[in-house]
Amino acid sequence: MLKIVNLHAEVDGTEILKGINLEIKAGEVHAVMGPNGSGKSTLSKVIAGHPAYEVTKGEIYFEGKNIEELAADERARLGIFLAFQYPVEIPGVSNSMLMRQAYNSIRREHGEEEMDPLEFDDYVHQKLDIVEMDPKFLDRSVNDGFSGGEKKRNEILQLAVLNPKLALLDETDSGLDIDALKIVSEGINKIKDSSKGVLLVTHYQRILNYITPDYVHVLKDGRIVKSGGKELALQLEADGYDNIIESVNGEAK
């Protein structure tokens, strides 16, 4: 589904990603972990097509297609979704308006008929339960005045509504209390299935108690320095990033 080959990317002339190789197949959950500044958030933004990041070397293939030249909206319509670490507030634009327009633009891309507002309303209401959200949220402006937890739930609601092939979850767990973390994780578990790929970027291991990854990758200074199964996350939690990374460096020497 997603294949990243020797990816280098920079922002404002500073190189952040220094040769990433990663492959995600349908049905797989990959966790990318790493200390602050390791480049893990950058990785998800580059895949989603953030215009501030420039790919200087390497390729990103989505379903066999090189997507490097595609703008963020084109990638989204192909089926890539980014759940933001810091969801953006957009006063004056209602949640339902945003989701309906986004959903219909994806349908148009696939040659499907647009959903009218009434049909869409029914469709969205079915999805609200996934993240235990009050229907009143639909009429509120996007993330405007939302608490941190509400913003993250809203990202997962959009994920459920837009139903992408690949979900990039950028530190979706950060800033959540335990109840909110449970709701968000369970929501993600309900949405993921054998046809979808998930890239879960996280600083902490705790979300992996709820969402079981198939692979865990440790990112350091723009490179994946260690990959393994779900037990790697537990090891990170127990020993800390420094020890893991040191032992990697030790092996290299």
Partner: peptide
Amino acid sequence: DEQEFYLKSRGLDD
């Protein structure tokens, strides 16, 4: 810019 990217990442064109 960030608002623009947010909406585009949802599939809305320019």
